[in-house]
Write a protein that binds this DNA or RNA. Structure first.
Length: 641
DNA sequence: TCAGAACCTCTTTTT
DNA sequence: GAGGTTCTGA
């Protein structure tokens, strides 16, 4: 361990050795904060003899959690039982054992994702007779999400806003939405956090237990926490006060989804005795790149002053290319990559193309394809979000708890078995009238008038199928159950007989079996329940296995936390980056600027910037103006090509 | 019940 | 301009 500390600079070492009491680490981009966190955990265990089980480390993504755990374990050469996970995974784990203390929830609760949420909201609107035009489901969901971030129950929301004509209706929607979630024994992503806070607030003994368990708490990416997460951390850290938060206010780019930059800016107010350590030495980029980044971010107000520096040397100037249009821009980027790969013998993995919006990737993708250059696109759709995967998941949920109406509804006619909307409406009406679940209505299908003979037989077959699958689930592992589901339901067969797209889908649901097998290997708890939770909280499984050779394309947001030797930031035009929506809002503009800062600091050696003179967006093309961010970089750092 | 037509929308995204 | 959703008619 002694020589491990030698691997750190003065500030880093200070951060590792300051183990007692509140600590704020302001870690600039590329300043080795992950290193500090992992060493700190190792130091706690090895030097301070802290039990690993007394440590809680919160990360932003599952991937980061996995990496951190692996790095600690390789530092200590052993396997340790500490909690290193995302907020959601940690809370889900707590709720798994404690959820019955919350009224109305059963232990085998399921986790609803955005897709499920939209469906529930639509049901709510229908039931309340509210128009989707006046109350757009997505808008409703984001209101509800923000409300939950603020720890506001439907009751509290109604108390506060109920006198407003429209907000009263939103409150009704929120209230019904929660009822429906409960009826499905489901929690959405926000609930997982919110309910944990409620659990702690209403059960002092439970809170005390976890306060005692987590004597040392670390939170990464603290600038991107929301109010609910802030509360959670503060509740847990209250008794031991060994709270270490790490973050960079200049990299707060998620305020649009509730991240409150104030959490990090006010940490010293919350904890007046907090030790503050700034990590400003950068180990990633050239001085030229850092000068550009510093110069851009300097224009933001109200930030903690920080100035990145490096011993890496000046490096190459930044290259700016003004293209005719987006095709020319793509041509230039791919041309440069081709040239550098050849002349400088660079791996395709060294290149990243970053853009503000996903739609910008299309043109560049086409060019890569035309030239036969391999590429991969990060982000976009999760494996779990694919229609066919969600269908199979719905089967699994239904098997686990057939009273979850949403799951039954999703699969009752997948694959097509002649149970259409008319039939479903009758079944739902019956269920509502008798106070039963949809599944129970299926059992009584004979006593429902108006359903045709054919449909009735299909329903009986379906009920039999579910019953059989439930039997299988009693005895078999998750992977075996999935196999039975896709075989017995006939779903796989239908897909395999379909067009290319369907065949691809068939492959995906088979892939789900591999995912389950992998899960069973890695986890002691190989139950269906555990697998479902894992899937719901997992972001992108494809990312985990495939490390294909190729250039990387992604949004600036997705690039946070990553680094590449050569980075291209494209589409530097007013209205695109910064986005038009930020023009009249200083806060939004500052967030765009932080996004630029994040993008620039991803580059190790070379940075390319580009814009197009003319760009086609939404089918219509128009002339553009160069992004103000280009002007915010000193001219002497940049050459035009 | 379902396929095709018309229609709408369109920043960023993790969990 | 594309992709997703809803509507309409057979």
């Amino acid at each position: 361990m002694e020589n491990l500390l030698d691997n750190l600079n003065k500030q880093q070492r200070e951060a590792v050795e300051h183990t007692e009491g509140p600590l704020l680490i302001l870690a600039g981009a590329g300043s080795g904060k992950t290193r500090v966190l992992t060493y700190r955990i190792a130091y706690l265990i090895n030097e301070k003899n802290v039990y690993p089980s007394n440590i809680l480390a919160i990360t932003f993504t599952n991937k980061a959690a996995k990496e951190m755990k692996e790095r600690v374990q390789s530092l200590l050469e052993g396997s340790y039982d500490m909690w290193v996970s995302t907020f959601h995974a940690a809370c889900a784990r707590i709720l798994r054992t404690q959820v019955e203390k919350l009224d109305g929830y059963k232990k085998n609760f399921i986790i609803f994702d955005t897709d499920d949420q939209v469906k529930v909201i639509k049901e709510c609107l229908k039931e309340l007779n509210y128009n989707e035009k006046n109350f757009p489901p997505k808008e409703m969901l984001s209101s509800i999400s923000k409300t939950k971030d603020q720890l506001m129950t439907p009751g509290r929301f109604m108390d506060r806003y109920g006198r407003d004509f429209r907000l009263k209706k939103v409150a009704d929607i929120y209230s019904l939405y929660q009822k429906k979630l409960m009826a499905n024994n489901a929690l959405d992503f926000d609930d997982i956090l919110f309910k944990t806070v409620e659990l702690f607030q209403n059960n002092p003994d439970v809170l005390q237990y976890y306060q005692n368990k987590f004597k040392y708490i670390m939170v990464d990416e603290y600038q991107d926490t929301n109010y609910c997460q802030y509360m959670l951390v503060n509740l847990l850290a209250k008794s031991h006060r060994n709270l270490c938060v790490v973050g960079d206010d200049d990299q707060c780019i998620y305020s649009w989804r509730g991240a409150d930059i104030g959490n990090i800016l006010n940490f010293e107010k919350d904890f007046p005795d907090a030790k503050v350590i700034k990590l400003e030495q950068n180990y990633r980029s050239t001085q030229t790149i850092l000068d550009a980044a510093n110069s851009v971010i300097d224009r933001n107000f109200g930030r903690k002053s920080k100035r990145l520096w490096t011993e890496n040397g000046e490096g190459k100037p930044i290259v700016y290319y003004k293209a005719m249009d987006e095709r020319d821009e793509g041509d230039f980027i791919i041309g440069e990559i081709d040239r550098l790969a050849f002349q400088e013998h660079r791996d395709l993995k060294s290149f990243a193309i970053l853009y503000r919006t996903n739609s910008q990737s299309r043109v560049i993708e086409e060019m890569c394809m035309a030239r036969g250059i391999p590429y991969k696109i990060v982000g976009g759709h999760r494996f779990y979000d694919r229609m066919e995967v969600k269908d199979v998941i719905a089967y699994l949920r239904a098997i686990q708890d057939p009273d979850g109406d949403l799951s039954i509804k999703r699969i009752i006619n997948v694959p097509k078995r002649g149970i259409g909307k008319a039939t479903l409406d009758l079944l739902e009406a019956y269920a509502r009238d008798t106070g039963n679940s949809l599944y129970e209505a299926l059992l009584f299908v004979d006593s429902i008038d108006g359903i045709g003979k054919k449909a009735k037989n299909s329903i009986k077959d379906f009920v039999r199928l579910i019953a059989e699958l439930m039997d299988v689930a009693e005895k078999e592992s998750a992977s075996a159950v999935i196999n039975e589901v896709i075989m017995r339901s006939g779903y796989l067969e239908v897909l395999e007989k379909g067009d290319d797209e369907d065949q691809e889908r068939g492959k995906n649901i088979k892939e789900l079996i591999s995912a389950a097998l992998e899960y069973e290997e890695k986890n002691e708890d190989s139950s269906l329940q555990g697998f479902l939770e894992n899937m719901a909280l997992m972001s992108d499984i494809d990312g985990l296995k495939e490390e294909r050779e190729g250039i990387t394309m992604m949004t600036l947001h997705s690039a946070k936390g990553l680094e590449f030797p050569v980075v291209f930031i494209c589409g530097l035009e007013e209205g695109l980056f910064p986005t038009q929506r930020a023009f009249f809002d200083e806060h939004q503009l500052e967030e765009e600027r932080r996004l630029m800062y994040v993008g620039v600091t991803r580059a190790r050696e070379k940075l390319y910037l580009s814009s197009a003179f003319e760009r086609t967006i939404y089918g219509s093309s128009s002339y553009t103006m160069e992004s103000r961010f280009l002007r915010e970089i000193p001219k002497d750092l940049m050459i035009k090509m």
